[in-house]
Amino acid sequence: MSLPRKLLALATLVPLALSLFSAPTQAAPATFTHPGVLVSRPQLDFVRAKVQAGAQPWKQAYDAMMSSSYASLSRSPKPRAIVECGSYSNPNIGCTDERQDAIAAYSLSLAWYITRDAKYATKAIEIMDAWSAVLKDHTNSNAPLQSAWSASSWPRAAEIIKHTYTGWPNSGRFGTMLRNVYLPEVINGSHSNGNWELSMTEAAIGIAVFLDDKTVYDKAVAKFRTRVPAYLYLTSDGALPKTAPGSGLDTRDKIVKYWQGQTTFVNGLSQETCRDFTHTGYGLAAIANFAETTRIQGQDLYPEIADRLREGLGFHAKYQMGAAVPSWLCGGSLKLGLGPITEVGYNHLHTRLGHTMSNTEALTLRQRPAGTNNLFVAWQTLTHAGNPQ
């Protein structure tokens, strides 16, 4: 994205009346909760106690994280001024390095909180400072999605370090990077496949919390409320799936094409089910992660999306576990690979609310300890398995 486009995008962050979508009411909390992106202090304390007690599955999940390259104290960050990412990361000029350094910062931040060993916080800060010192822009066709993935992980790490560790002089510079480099890429969303916009809204809400920015928070929530119903179908929607405002999907043929040619719609079907489960997993993860962050901030969006998320997780878990694919579904053939994405949604809907989710439960237990998809999902068994906080 060129500099003029970035300035134009920044201009849209002024009053919500200028937004493409406006929330019914202001959503932002009067005071933000910190740390408060995906994990809160009570959640982290729960995890720390479980790991210290050697309780499972948390200890196994912790050991998996600590044995990964992401938690290595010898890791050398690889920042670039310009990260160029084309479709499917081709070309890949800094794309993998950026995403993985962001996950590493988050992993090291979790290691710091659980162990209280300052060397992990110091390494996380080293990685975040390295990028905030040089990063200026993202370019090529995947720039918005690359920004979304990286900026979903960065605020999780930054929140933990800034609010539980003493001694991060460059935290303000890091916040400036989030605002000036990442936010313009993600705040206005996308009418590409739904996982793009859902990841973009997750990044935006995390940035909003770190920056204590109520305007950005409200805009992210407004977009989330329109995108989730356009991504996961419920029979109560009617004969056709809902569409996001401004999508241009104003005929049945256009909607069917957008839904990868699928013409039979059932509870839990995703806009990308017939594309592949991997991208569907990205969308499901971003939905749960977003709702988890807003819950921590005192605004529980789960009730608005609970049925869709529960049905979506269960529907895809069923086929990921090996159920026969009916001929009406994606022509009788599915591309599986849902990924380690179920823990956050399953924890809230099952552990906290008590919903029976047999398919999701079976897949979640089979995948433990959930690792990382090397994009923006990481260590959810550690942070969210059976976590009531």
Rank of each mutant, 00 (worst) to 15 (best):
G167F: 07
W168A: 08
P169N: 11
S171C: 06
G172I: 04
F174A: 14
F174W: 14
T176K: 12
T176M: 05
E185H: 15
V186C: 12
V186K: 09
I187S: 14
N188F: 00
G189N: 09
H191S: 02
H191N: 13
S192V: 00
N193S: 08
N193P: 12
N195I: 00
W196R: 01
W196L: 02
E197W: 00
S199W: 01
I205P: 13
G206M: 08
L211M: 12
D213C: 09
D213R: 05
K214D: 12
T215H: 03
V216F: 05
D218E: 04
D218Y: 01
A220R: 03
A220D: 12
V221R: 02
F224L: 12
R227A: 10
V228Y: 10
A230C: 08
L232S: 08
L232Y: 06
D237V: 00
P241H: 00
T243M: 05
S247G: 09
S247D: 15
S247T: 07
S247V: 05
L249K: 02
L249M: 10
D250N: 15
D250I: 08
T251Q: 10
T251F: 09
D253M: 01
I255C: 06
V256A: 01
K257D: 14
Y258F: 14
Y258P: 02
W259N: 05
G261R: 04
G261Y: 07
T263E: 15
T264Y: 10
S270E: 11
Q271V: 03
E272C: 06
T273A: 11
D276Y: 01
D276A: 06
D276V: 02
